[in-house]
């Protein structure tokens, strides 16, 4: 298990791609939002992949770069602080295709995933990707 990286501040935004099949209408709020299942650890893994917004920007990247190869995806954002309040640890995990790739590691209960889903802010919303 890796350690939480405190150089990633609580206010830092973490971007997560959301495929169109994981966007649900919420008639209670009148909005389209990611399903809670969009904030799940990768199948068989302990962590969920995100991209660190500031690191992406620092290296000249833009939010649209993250979905360029995924035409059916939108982009949502949650803060590192929100994930930490649900017992997650956050650390950089640079990969070849995304220098800002970051892991949010920890057990994601249904309540935790629902909170991420409800608190998520669209960076590239549906119908604009």
């Amino acid at each position: 298990m890796c350690a939480d990286d405190d150089s990633i501040l609580d206010d830092d935004n973490l971007y997560r791609r959301v495929p169109d099949v994981q966007i649900v209408p919420d008639d209670n709020t009148g909005e389209l939002r990611p399903t809670s299942k969009a904030f799940q650890n990768e199948s068989g893994q302990k962590a969920m992949s995100v991209s660190h917004a500031l690191k992406l920007e620092k290296h000249g990247g833009k939010p649209h770069d993250l979905i360029r190869n995924y035409p059916h995806c939108c982009l949502a954002s949650i803060t590192a602080g929100l994930t930490r309040t649900h017992n997650q640890i956050v650390y950089y995990d640079e990969i070849e295709e995304d220098i800002s790739h970051t892991h949010v590691e920890g057990k994601k209960t249904k309540g935790c995933r629902r909170t991420f889903s409800k608190q998520a802010v669209w960076i590239i919303p549906p119908n604009s990707a």
Binding site: P25, Q40, S43
Partner: peptide, 24 residues
Amino acid sequence: TIVPTSSGVLQAEWHTRNIDLEME
């Protein structure tokens, strides 16, 4: 609304009538 999950199963969701119901 039926949504897919990364593990290959399905979840049904209702967010209406002041109720939130999700069943995976």
